[in-house]
Amino acid sequence: MPYSWSSPQNASEQTLELWPHQSLPPRGMAAFVLATFTLITIPLFGLLGTALLWALLPFLLIAVGGIWFALHRSHQDRSTLETLTIGSDQTVLHRTNPRAKDQHWDSNTYWVTVELHQKDGPVPNYVTLKGNGREVEIGAFLSEEERQQLFAELTSAFSSARAAR
Protein backbone atom coordinates (compact mmCIF):
# COMPACT_ATOMS: atom_id res chain seq x y z
CA MET A 1 0.00 0.00 0.00
CA PRO A 2 1.39 3.40 -0.89
CA TYR A 3 0.35 4.94 2.42
CA SER A 4 1.24 4.55 6.07
CA TRP A 5 -0.19 5.51 9.45
CA SER A 6 1.96 6.78 12.28
CA SER A 7 1.25 8.05 15.76
CA PRO A 8 3.67 10.61 17.20
CA GLN A 9 4.44 10.94 20.92
CA ASN A 10 1.07 12.62 21.37
CA ALA A 11 -1.25 9.58 21.48
CA SER A 12 -4.32 11.67 20.64
CA GLU A 13 -2.95 12.44 17.17
CA GLN A 14 -2.61 10.19 14.11
CA THR A 15 -0.77 10.96 10.88
CA LEU A 16 -1.43 9.40 7.50
CA GLU A 17 0.99 9.82 4.58
CA LEU A 18 -0.10 8.89 1.04
CA TRP A 19 2.01 8.82 -2.13
CA PRO A 20 1.62 7.45 -5.67
CA HIS A 21 3.00 4.05 -6.62
CA GLN A 22 6.74 4.07 -7.35
CA SER A 23 6.93 1.31 -9.95
CA LEU A 24 10.21 2.38 -11.58
CA PRO A 25 12.98 3.59 -9.27
CA PRO A 26 15.67 5.97 -10.64
CA ARG A 27 18.16 3.11 -11.02
CA GLY A 28 15.63 1.12 -13.07
CA MET A 29 15.00 4.19 -15.22
CA ALA A 30 18.72 4.51 -15.97
CA ALA A 31 18.92 0.81 -16.86
CA PHE A 32 15.90 1.09 -19.16
CA VAL A 33 17.28 4.13 -21.01
CA LEU A 34 20.69 2.42 -21.40
CA ALA A 35 19.06 -0.78 -22.69
CA THR A 36 16.94 1.24 -25.13
CA PHE A 37 19.99 3.13 -26.38
CA THR A 38 21.91 -0.14 -26.83
CA LEU A 39 19.09 -1.82 -28.74
CA ILE A 40 18.53 1.21 -30.97
CA THR A 41 22.23 1.41 -31.91
CA ILE A 42 22.53 -2.28 -32.93
CA PRO A 43 21.09 -1.67 -36.44
CA LEU A 44 23.55 1.21 -36.88
CA PHE A 45 26.57 -1.12 -36.84
CA GLY A 46 25.85 -2.08 -40.45
CA LEU A 47 25.95 1.60 -41.40
CA LEU A 48 29.36 2.39 -39.89
CA GLY A 49 31.46 4.41 -42.30
CA THR A 50 28.52 5.61 -44.40
CA ALA A 51 26.84 8.98 -44.64
CA LEU A 52 23.49 7.36 -43.81
CA LEU A 53 24.74 6.74 -40.24
CA TRP A 54 25.07 10.49 -39.68
CA ALA A 55 21.63 11.08 -41.18
CA LEU A 56 19.93 8.58 -38.83
CA LEU A 57 21.93 9.20 -35.66
CA PRO A 58 20.27 12.52 -34.66
CA PHE A 59 16.78 10.97 -34.93
CA LEU A 60 17.79 8.00 -32.82
CA LEU A 61 19.32 10.28 -30.19
CA ILE A 62 16.15 12.41 -30.16
CA ALA A 63 14.11 9.22 -29.60
CA VAL A 64 16.29 8.17 -26.64
CA GLY A 65 16.16 11.73 -25.26
CA GLY A 66 12.37 11.71 -25.57
CA ILE A 67 12.15 8.44 -23.64
CA TRP A 68 14.42 9.83 -20.92
CA PHE A 69 12.36 13.06 -20.71
CA ALA A 70 9.06 11.15 -20.44
CA LEU A 71 10.36 8.84 -17.72
CA HIS A 72 11.92 11.75 -15.82
CA ARG A 73 8.65 13.71 -15.96
CA SER A 74 6.74 10.65 -14.76
CA HIS A 75 9.17 10.31 -11.84
CA GLN A 76 8.60 13.97 -10.89
CA ASP A 77 4.83 13.49 -11.01
CA ARG A 78 5.14 10.64 -8.51
CA SER A 79 6.65 13.00 -5.92
CA THR A 80 3.16 14.03 -4.79
CA LEU A 81 2.70 13.60 -1.04
CA GLU A 82 -0.49 13.95 1.01
CA THR A 83 -0.21 14.23 4.79
CA LEU A 84 -3.35 13.98 6.92
CA THR A 85 -3.03 14.75 10.62
CA ILE A 86 -6.04 13.80 12.75
CA GLY A 87 -5.99 15.34 16.20
CA SER A 88 -8.67 15.30 18.87
CA ASP A 89 -9.63 18.90 18.01
CA GLN A 90 -8.17 19.71 14.58
CA THR A 91 -7.71 17.79 11.30
CA VAL A 92 -5.18 19.06 8.75
CA LEU A 93 -4.60 17.82 5.19
CA HIS A 94 -1.48 19.04 3.40
CA ARG A 95 -0.76 18.09 -0.23
CA THR A 96 2.66 18.68 -1.75
CA ASN A 97 2.37 18.93 -5.54
CA PRO A 98 5.36 18.47 -7.88
CA ARG A 99 4.75 21.43 -10.21
CA ALA A 100 2.11 23.50 -8.43
CA LYS A 101 1.53 25.26 -5.15
CA ASP A 102 1.06 23.17 -2.05
CA GLN A 103 -2.54 22.78 -0.94
CA HIS A 104 -3.76 23.02 2.66
CA TRP A 105 -7.09 22.19 4.30
CA ASP A 106 -8.09 22.10 7.95
CA SER A 107 -11.25 21.55 9.92
CA ASN A 108 -12.56 20.70 13.36
CA THR A 109 -12.24 16.91 13.73
CA TYR A 110 -15.72 16.60 15.19
CA TRP A 111 -17.34 17.99 12.02
CA VAL A 112 -15.25 16.11 9.42
CA THR A 113 -17.15 13.52 7.40
CA VAL A 114 -15.52 10.90 5.18
CA GLU A 115 -17.43 10.08 2.01
CA LEU A 116 -16.98 7.39 -0.62
CA HIS A 117 -18.38 8.32 -4.05
CA GLN A 118 -18.61 4.98 -5.81
CA LYS A 119 -19.68 6.30 -9.22
CA ASP A 120 -20.05 10.09 -8.99
CA GLY A 121 -16.37 11.08 -8.73
CA PRO A 122 -13.71 11.48 -11.39
CA VAL A 123 -12.48 7.97 -10.51
CA PRO A 124 -14.41 5.00 -9.09
CA ASN A 125 -14.52 4.86 -5.28
CA TYR A 126 -13.52 8.51 -4.92
CA VAL A 127 -12.78 9.39 -1.27
CA THR A 128 -13.41 12.90 0.04
CA LEU A 129 -13.24 14.69 3.36
CA LYS A 130 -15.90 17.30 4.09
CA GLY A 131 -15.64 19.96 6.74
CA ASN A 132 -15.22 23.68 7.32
CA GLY A 133 -17.41 24.43 4.29
CA ARG A 134 -15.18 22.55 1.81
CA GLU A 135 -14.93 19.09 0.35
CA VAL A 136 -11.43 17.86 -0.55
CA GLU A 137 -10.20 14.72 -2.24
CA ILE A 138 -7.74 12.35 -0.67
CA GLY A 139 -5.84 9.48 -2.28
CA ALA A 140 -7.14 10.01 -5.84
CA PHE A 141 -3.95 8.37 -7.18
CA LEU A 142 -4.64 5.09 -5.32
CA SER A 143 -6.25 2.07 -6.97
CA GLU A 144 -9.98 1.35 -6.51
CA GLU A 145 -9.38 -1.33 -3.89
CA GLU A 146 -6.90 0.84 -2.00
CA ARG A 147 -9.40 3.73 -1.91
CA GLN A 148 -12.05 1.41 -0.47
CA GLN A 149 -9.62 0.26 2.22
CA LEU A 150 -8.55 3.88 2.85
CA PHE A 151 -12.21 4.86 3.31
CA ALA A 152 -12.69 2.14 5.95
CA GLU A 153 -9.49 3.14 7.76
CA LEU A 154 -10.35 6.86 7.69
CA THR A 155 -13.85 6.20 9.02
CA SER A 156 -12.36 4.18 11.86
CA ALA A 157 -9.67 6.81 12.59
CA PHE A 158 -12.19 9.66 12.77
CA SER A 159 -14.49 7.59 14.99
CA SER A 160 -11.66 6.90 17.45
CA ALA A 161 -10.52 10.56 17.33
CA ARG A 162 -14.04 11.74 18.20
CA ALA A 163 -14.26 9.16 21.00
CA ALA A 164 -10.95 10.42 22.47
CA ARG A 165 -12.42 13.91 23.01
Rank of each mutant, 00 (worst) to 15 (best):
N97M: 15
T91M: 01
L154N: 08
G87S: 04
A100Y: 10
H104R: 14
E115Q: 12
L53D: 06
L39T: 14
E82K: 00
E153T: 09
A63H: 05
G133S: 11
L142E: 03
A140H: 04
L57E: 11
G139I: 03
T85S: 14
A140Y: 01
P122T: 12
T109E: 00
F69M: 13
L142C: 07
V112Q: 03
V64F: 02
Q118G: 08
L150C: 04
A70K: 01
P98A: 05
G133T: 08
G66L: 01
I42C: 10
R147W: 03
T109A: 00
F69Y: 13
S107F: 01
E153S: 07
L81T: 13
F69A: 14
H75G: 08
W105Y: 07
T50A: 07
S88R: 06
A140G: 04
T41I: 10
Q76Y: 11
D77C: 11
T41E: 15
K119T: 12
L48D: 14
F141P: 11
A161T: 01
V127W: 00
L142I: 05
G139D: 09
F69E: 09
Q103H: 09
V136H: 06
T85F: 02
Q103C: 06
Q76S: 15
L48P: 09
F69G: 10
D120M: 00
Q149I: 12
L142V: 02
A152E: 14
W111C: 06
L56S: 11
K101R: 15
L61E: 07
Q118F: 00
T109H: 00
